[in-house]
Amino acid sequence: MTALLRVQDLRVRFRTMGPLKALATGTKAPFIDAVCGVSFEIGKGETLALVGESGSGKSTIARTIIGLQRAVSGSISFDGQEIEELSGAERKPYLRRMAMIFQDPIGSLSPRLTVRSLLTEPFRIHRRKDHDAGSEAERLLRMVGLSADFGRRYPHQLSGGQARRVGIARALALKPDLIIADEPTAGLDVSVQGEVLNLLARLQDELGMAILIISHNLNVVRHMTDRMAIMYLGRFIEVGSTERIFEHPRHPYTEALLAANPEPDPDAVLNRIELKGEVPSLMRRPPGCEFHTRCRYTEDICHRVFPEPSTSPDDTDHSFRCHFPLKLEIIPVWSGHILSQSEPNDCD
């Protein structure tokens, strides 16, 4: 499959204190790495999910791809063109082919604009004068199952589901090749969630667009996606086809996430896995395997050696970072390197 979006060794960091304070306190690196060495591809028409706890770096990746955040290193190429180093004017034609559905359906809509103005805003920003604004707004509303009367409403007059549909319609205005959906069902009733998911699936079939979906809802991930990537402290710790990971998780963190997934059957026998401790601070990453502070399978090597990606012999597209995967038949891709208890890893 031809890659529409290719991300290589992406690294995004944020400053934790100002230059003067860092100088006064003797802090050599006043930064935290929110995303550390992430690589992935999305093919045309494919759906990839980013899964992980809050603060793992999922939304930061999305915002970096769309141009709202700058990376300190790594590359982002879209349809074969490296875009991370392009200027604003040079990036615009490529950003026109990407769109984002933000997590807060109402908060992402300007309260001063009507729905009609919100839907036609992409045409104004990209100076597309070859379309009639009124007819385009009505077309987009029909596409997401809303009547033309909604064009006269303001965001505060919309329900959460209606605001989500308006956000989807706005994202589709310029017929993008890639949609980035950040928690598209967050805050919605279950029935409305189903409507939104079915709408996205139908539009993907009709328009052939690729989707990068960010979600905590594993039922949504299993229903919507072809592949998924599990994130922990800004890294991918397991990547593979969605069905493969659900059926054969290799990383203990993935196992715990899947075990915590809500089960609608009240008579089902649940095998919950309780993770001990808190998520480590990005300012003090644990040495060795960063998950060892919460892992129930941890051994001495986990405290000292950072695990490099490995793959299964029967599925080389299923990769994971773990010294003691849930199934032991692994093929190392690269050899690990030893970190002392005091030595920081490459993201410190």
Score class of each variant (00 low, 15 high):
residue 187 G to P: 07
residue 298 T to H: 06
residue 2 T to L: 07
residue 171 A to W: 12
residue 108 S to N: 12
residue 218 L to T: 07
residue 136 E to T: 12
residue 292 H to T: 00
residue 262 P to G: 09
residue 236 F to T: 07
residue 12 V to G: 04
residue 222 R to S: 12
residue 300 D to K: 09
residue 260 A to Q: 06
residue 14 F to A: 00
residue 119 L to T: 10
residue 265 D to M: 03
residue 157 Q to S: 12
residue 284 R to I: 10
residue 220 V to T: 09
residue 28 K to C: 10
residue 344 P to R: 10
residue 136 E to I: 14
residue 331 I to L: 05
residue 296 R to N: 00
residue 48 L to Y: 09
residue 316 T to Y: 03
residue 99 A to Q: 14
residue 43 G to K: 12
residue 282 L to T: 10
residue 184 P to I: 05
residue 116 R to P: 01
residue 35 V to C: 03
residue 321 R to P: 05
residue 202 R to H: 14
residue 14 F to Y: 01
residue 184 P to G: 07
residue 232 Y to M: 12
residue 304 R to T: 14
residue 168 I to G: 10
residue 12 V to M: 05
residue 338 I to W: 00
residue 346 D to V: 13
residue 164 R to H: 01
residue 261 N to E: 04
residue 330 I to S: 15
residue 119 L to N: 01
residue 110 S to G: 04
residue 151 G to I: 14
residue 6 R to M: 06
residue 292 H to P: 03
residue 263 E to A: 14
residue 68 L to N: 07
residue 232 Y to G: 12
residue 346 D to H: 13
residue 231 M to P: 08
residue 153 R to G: 08
residue 194 G to P: 02
residue 131 H to C: 07
residue 285 R to G: 10
residue 230 I to C: 04
residue 196 V to I: 15
residue 119 L to E: 00
residue 258 L to E: 00
residue 76 I to S: 04
residue 164 R to D: 02
residue 12 V to C: 06
residue 79 D to C: 05
residue 1 M to R: 14
residue 73 S to I: 08
residue 196 V to K: 13
